[in-house]
């Protein structure tokens, strides 16, 4: 009986110490950021730069998806949400969004595909499964392999809103769960067509012109390229001063030029670059 008591008290002591460790105060101010995994890599990189400049502030960046990030800010669990989709009405009433940058969605094919442009109606009919052979849109004869994203992904939501309209994405399309996966599959399959963030394209795949417009920063800024979504930074109604400071840094010319170099279209272009 006595040994058991001793064991139990040992366990209790360990747990108490662990709990105490969690409560150790960090001398630095912590800003918690959560949300879209599409925006995450950009903000994570900028957060490191920011922490290097401001030793007093620590920025913790987490993913979880746009919806989860917004929920976290609403619940007070995070200071700042990253959202790759527009806010719904209920969210817009309680939260303050600011556009950090624009991200274009590019429709991409394999490098060897001779098709260089499609009308948005053609893209819609391809993804709806009505056009199933490349020869019908000027390509080499052969079945089209459709690459889509999972139901609920912000990228898919924007694509369906802007391109698909009321027609559903074909059930026969492959479903991949990340921008990177779409890139790898389209890069490897000569018959594939997919869509992903412009910033993630590399030389193994080719963006095609939609309605005669290639996805470029200039076409996005001038409004000619329509497959565009905002990357939002969202705070609660009354954010702390430190959070405002970090948001101001993300919108500063220095941070915006980093974003531009990473393939995004800056929300606030520096004077003269327009």
């Amino acid at each position: 009986m006595r040994t058991r008591c001793r064991h139990l008290s040992l366990v209790a002591l360990t747990l108490a110490l662990l709990a105490a460790a969690c409560r150790l105060p960090d001398p630095r101010m912590t800003i918690t950021v959560a949300g879209s995994t599409s925006i995450l890599p950009f903000v994570e990189y900028l957060a490191e730069l920011y922490s290097d400049q401001n030793r007093a502030v620590r920025v913790a960046v987490q993913g979880g998806g746009s919806t989860a990030g917004l929920q976290a800010v609403l619940a007070g669990a995070a200071d700042l949400a990253m959202s790759s989709r527009p806010l719904v009405a209920a969210e817009a009433r309680q939260l303050q969004p600011v556009i950090m940058a624009w991200d274009a969605l590019a429709v991409v094919v394999h490098r060897s595909n001779p098709v260089s442009g499609l009308s948005s109606a053609e893209v819609r009919r391809i993804f709806a499964g009505e056009v199933r052979d490349w020869s019908r849109v000027g390509g080499r004869p052969g079945p089209i392999t459709l690459i889509s994203r999972e139901d609920g992904s912000g990228t898919r939501q924007v694509f369906e809103d802007r391109v698909m309209g009321p027609s559903p994405t074909a059930q026969r399309s492959l479903v991949l769960d990340a921008n990177g996966a779409v890139r790898e599959v389209v890069a490897a399959d000569p018959a594939a067509i997919g869509y992903l963030s412009l910033g993630l394209i590399d030389e193994r795949l080719r963006p095609i012109a939609v309605d005669g417009q290639l996805p470029t920063a200039a076409a996005v800024l001038s409004g000619h390229y329509r497959l565009v979504r905002p990357f939002l930074l969202v705070t609660g109604a009354d954010p702390r001063r430190e959070v405002g400071g970090f948001v101001a840094f993300l919108l500063s010319p220095a941070a915006q030029s980093v974003l531009a170099a990473e393939g995004l279209v800056p929300a606030a272009p520096a004077e003269g670059s327009r």
Binding site: G64, G65, T67, A68, G152, V175, D177
Partner: peptide, 9 residues
């Protein structure tokens, strides 16, 4: 389940 649970409401 793995693909969609993260977003589903």
């Amino acid at each position: 389940m793995a693909l969609e649970l993260g977003y589903a409401t």
